[in-house]
Design a protein around this nucleic acid. Structure first.
Lengths: 92, 92
DNA sequence: CACAATTTGTTCGTATGTATT
DNA sequence: TAATACATACGAACAAATTGT
């Protein structure tokens, strides 16, 4: 059943928080919570949601950026890469 | 010309890495790579360049700060002290 | 044009835990 | 025990660019 929120971070465990968060964000993208070419919430917003530091969120986001899952536009935001998931494409 | 990089750090040797690094940074300043009143690269950037931890860079920088070779401005950066070498001021 | 809000980029400051020497 | 060194994580502050009013 429920297997929990999946959005819980464990501090002090074997897996760094930033890596746990990267997986949570990845899941949200694959689940379709955040769609291709749409911006993610800002780093600070995500930090507030999870109760962690902005720089820790930043590190997680950059993990996904390195993988091409998202792309970062300075002073604009972080966006879900197009074509990362076989959901629809363009409407607008 | 001269001898190479001189930028090699020896781990586990008799001289701590942070002291070796302090000497490398000092040499760069005296050589004029970094000029008076100009900022050094950030601690993290230097750490990346040498493949060491940021806190180790920090320790090296503070060795130079204690000597007055550089001065640190919180949240801004670390700057080469003025008048440390006869090649200062003003061009741009 | 001015102003504030938002967001990423970057910096130093600090603390904890772990491992090695 | 102590010094050294690393990874992780949080905090605070400022810069630069964009967006909205």
């Amino acid at each position: 059943m429920e297997y929990g929120p999946d959005d819980d971070l464990i501090h002090g465990g074997p897996v760094p928080v930033y890596r746990q968060l990267a997986e949570i964000l990845r899941a949200r993208i694959e689940r379709g919570d955040w769609k291709p070419n749409r911006p993610l919430p800002g780093e600070q917003r995500i930090a507030d949601e999870f109760g962690i530091a902005r720089l820790t969120v930043r590190k997680a986001v950059h993990v996904l950026a390195d993988e091409g899952v998202v792309f970062v536009v300075p002073q604009r935001g972080t966006f879900v890469s197009p074509g990362d998931h076989p959901s629809e494409s363009g409407e607008e």
